[in-house]
Simulated assay, not measured.
Amino acid sequence: MKCIIMANGDYGDIQNYRWLLDEADIILCADGGANYAYQMGVLPAYIVGDMDSIKPQVRAYYEGHKIPFKKYPQRKDFTDTQLILELAEELGASEIIFVGSLGKRLDHTLSNLYCGAELALRGKKIWHYSSDCSAYLVNTEFTVEGEIGDKVSVLALSDMARGVYEEGFEYPLENVILEKWNPYAISNVLREKRGVIRVQDGLLLVLHYRGRSL
């Protein structure tokens, strides 16, 4: 089941997300992410969080449509992202796609990226989408599809990632070890329209910048 989680981060032109939302089996909103769902006319299955970011008129609108709210206190041990990931797993999601999860605040961005690590290591497909970048959590093999010249960066999310391969790139890698504290596999370039990234042990973060010269 494909689950979209709408977070309260940067979106840019919200119409860039319409195609992705149309493919979703279920849509969940993390607190202020409901403000963007409201702008797009989306009725989520649940709204989750401490409700400190959702606008009053948006909350009233969704309450009027009987959308379930899972409200938590502001003083809590887990972030809204962690709570909504737990719900997505309970609902049976096999693929979880975040939107609005990158940008705005660096601490929130990093937290959002790390929150999915455990599920990714258990075989769930976890990725983040924005209008110019997609970020994928990879623990086996992943194929990047784009245009020749697209930038692709690979970081170790685990302390170490062993047996890393990159094929179809200007700077190929073959059976290397990436360490979290030595991020040298940055700004690779697609040499073909498909590039393959593999890791034998550990977790990678693969960032694909579409059509940008960075």
Rank of each mutant, 00 (worst) to 15 (best):
M160S: 13
D107E: 12
L207R: 08
N35K: 07
E89M: 06
A161P: 00
S134M: 12
E147D: 10
R191M: 13
G9R: 08
W127Y: 15
R59E: 15
A117W: 02
V48G: 08
A120H: 04
Y17Q: 04
I47K: 10
L214E: 15
L157D: 00
Y62T: 11
G116C: 05
S94N: 14
E166S: 15
A185T: 11
D22T: 06
L121V: 02
A7F: 13
G163A: 07
M160A: 07
G49C: 09
E167S: 12
Y72R: 07
A45S: 14
K2F: 08
G100K: 03
G163R: 03
R198Y: 00
R191V: 01
K180W: 01
G211L: 07
E89I: 14
S53T: 14
E147H: 07
K2Y: 08
L157I: 10
D13L: 11
L178S: 04
Y171E: 07
Y11Q: 10
I47M: 09
D77H: 11
R210E: 12
A120T: 06
L204N: 02
I47S: 06
T143K: 08
V164I: 08
E95D: 13
A45V: 02
P172M: 02
L157C: 01
A135T: 14
M51P: 05
E174Q: 12
L157E: 00
C29H: 02
F69S: 05
P172H: 06
Y171H: 11
E89G: 02
I148V: 15
R198N: 02
I177H: 00
Y136E: 12
G41L: 11
Y114C: 13
H65G: 01
I126D: 05
P56C: 01
T143D: 03
K151Y: 09
H208W: 07
F98Q: 07
P183S: 10
Y114V: 10
Q74I: 13
L203A: 02
T81P: 09
Y184N: 11
I96W: 05
I54C: 05
L119R: 11
L110E: 10
Q57G: 09
K2P: 00
M1R: 11
F142K: 03
I84K: 12
Y17F: 15
E145C: 09
A135L: 15
T140Y: 05
I126L: 12
L28A: 07
I84E: 08
Y209Q: 12
E167A: 07
K125M: 06
N35V: 08
D25S: 14
G163H: 01
R122S: 12
G49E: 04
S187W: 07
L207G: 05
L155K: 00
R194K: 14
A45D: 10
I148M: 08
L119N: 04
D50M: 08
Y114E: 13
Y62S: 10
Q15R: 13
V99W: 03
E192L: 10
Y38T: 03
T140C: 05
T79V: 11
R18D: 03
D201K: 15
L205S: 05
L204T: 04
L102P: 15
R210I: 11
G9S: 12
T140Q: 14
R105K: 14
K124H: 14
A60W: 01
E23I: 02
L83S: 09
V164F: 01
F142I: 01
L43P: 01
Y17N: 05
L205V: 07
K70Q: 15
I4L: 12
W181R: 15
A156C: 10
S111D: 13
V144G: 03
V176D: 00
G33D: 10
L43V: 14
N182G: 02
S153R: 11
